[in-house]
Design a protein around this nucleic acid. Sequence first.
DNA 1: GATATATTTGAACAATCGCTCAATTATTTT
DNA 2: AAAATAATTGAGCGATTGTTCAAATATATC
Lengths: 195, 195
Amino acid sequence: MSKKAKFDRQQVIENATNLYWEKGYHATSMRNLQDAIDLRPGSIYAEFGSKDGVFKASLEHYAELGLTELENLRVQSSSPVEALKGFIKQVVIDSQNEAPSCMCMLAKTVAELTDDQPELLSVAKNALKSVENQFAQLIVEAQKKEEIGKSKDPQELARFLQIQITGLRVYAKTSDDNGPLEKMIDELFDHHPFQ
Amino acid sequence: MSKKAKFDRQQVIENATNLYWEKGYHATSMRNLQDAIDLRPGSIYAEFGSKDGVFKASLEHYAELGLTELENLRVQSSSPVEALKGFIKQVVIDSQNEAPSCMCMLAKTVAELTDDQPELLSVAKNALKSVENQFAQLIVEAQKKEEIGKSKDPQELARFLQIQITGLRVYAKTSDDNGPLEKMIDELFDHHPFQ
DNA sequence: GATATATTTGAACAATCGCTCAATTATTTT
DNA sequence: AAAATAATTGAGCGATTGTTCAAATATATC
């Protein structure tokens, strides 16, 4: 005695993520969103509650995307350091052609939002921390395989990588010459604080 | 036979900059702006033409602020490297308490805007490049004083610093522990690519 | 002090904002 | 097929957006 047929929630979130990722939180209107995910207001508000609700779901989906990609690269490669390097090359270099924005959606959100949106800001910060923790885990693994010195602090190295990625991605948006960036990525693990 | 008395243009731009710097381009409305700079629409549009016009003036003022601050630090210090380090500490650490936002307004703008605002995006990119060039100039000076090896490419080192600053400032917004960041800044010039 | 002229004011424009909800549609159970 | 119920629709709410402009105001010249 009810109607079950529904839109594909995963597909809706994916489309919403791509739009928010490209335009950012404030520049994306609910009408932009309605077009992008092909849903009428009633359905959106029944499912997500508000514009913020859709954005929150998008942030979480985006973070999940990144973590999954990192896992995939880890499985494909026999070396944790190679997986990390591959991930960084992908987000800094490849994302310029493929992704909705060459910016990291989480960093972009942290940069854009203020304390007027404390919950969304918190979601973005926590997601960045999750990625950092995943980095640290791969670094621990690399230490076990003697790819990285065992005296190094994994969390410190992971934080260092986060900072490099954020800096590199913003810089990539200001420049059309990837050469210097690729070189920086290639050399990332060959010097301090890794060596 | 005319009326000359006018608002203080410099003060108006300064107030506009502080608001835009804090809230970003899209989250700042013309009415927010009217309140912050205490001008009615007619005066604003007569002077700046549009919301974009005010933002452009703010970006240019912000860039000028940074370049001036860098020059001041250079004069105060006998060492170009110390001036650079002081500048970085100021924007990454001190800005958290003092500035409208701990983010760099230029990086924040590059991160937020898309090709829908090509001119504003271009102004922000060019301003970042100006700062980078100023870094390079200080590095050349440091090489003459043997503070940095003469074999190093000043533009490459300047680019490296820009990337570090951007990464560090975004990270600072996600974390409340400045300790690791201060340590990173202190060690910045002691390793590759500087040494 | 009268006149001319530039500046400043604030009401108001059309468009869009996030969001609501009565009405319609589609599915499942009886 | 009828009844029950959940999902979907889209018109439209009040508020806010960037911007305009006629009217009011203030200053410089005569």
